[in-house]
Simulated assay, not measured.
Amino acid sequence: MKITIDIDCTPEEARAFMGLPDVKPMQDAVMVQLQEQLQRQIERADPDALMQTWLAPSIEGFAKFQNALWSAAMGKAKGEEETGTSDK
């Protein structure tokens, strides 16, 4: 046996019906605080410091990765030249 019940109500009505608390005022207060903190952090942010802190390590990491790939490719090419063989 299968029974289907469709209830047409808003989320607020469903919370009230189930006895759940209304947390909207608390969410609004937290969001206001979060927005104020973010705005303060943005105002204090130093673009040069952000570049050195976040972007420089990723560029260095990419350069190291690129060098590793390049040296691996060059090592393979040297190995083929020395033995006179290829993978073809």
Rank of each mutant, 00 (worst) to 15 (best):
A63D: 12
L38F: 10
A63S: 14
Q66T: 13
Q41M: 08
V32T: 11
N67V: 08
I42W: 02
W70F: 13
Q66P: 00
V30H: 12
Q37I: 04
Q27L: 15
Q33V: 06
F65Q: 12
L69A: 11
F62P: 01
M26Y: 09
A16R: 09
P57I: 05
L69I: 07
D6Y: 01
A63G: 05
K64S: 12
D46L: 05
V23P: 00
D48P: 00
E12L: 04
L69P: 00
P47A: 09
D48C: 03
P25Q: 03
K24W: 07
M26C: 04
Q66S: 15
P11V: 04
A73W: 11
W54E: 08
L55G: 03
V32C: 05
V32Q: 15
F65L: 11
F65A: 11
V32L: 14
E12G: 05
A56K: 10
L34P: 01
A16H: 03
A72L: 12
Q37G: 03
Q39D: 14
D22R: 04
A16D: 02
A72Y: 09
A16E: 06
R15D: 03
N67S: 13
P25W: 02
A56T: 12
L38D: 05
E13W: 01
Q52S: 07
I7Y: 01
M31F: 13
A72V: 05
I5L: 07
E60T: 10
F62M: 13
E36P: 00
K64G: 06
I7F: 00
M31Q: 15
P11I: 03
L34S: 15
Q27I: 11
L69E: 12
Q66V: 13
S71F: 12
I7E: 02
E43Q: 15
E13D: 07
F17V: 01
D28N: 14
M26I: 14
Q35G: 08
E13G: 00
T53F: 02
L50K: 03
I59E: 13
L69N: 11
A63V: 15
C9K: 10
L50S: 08
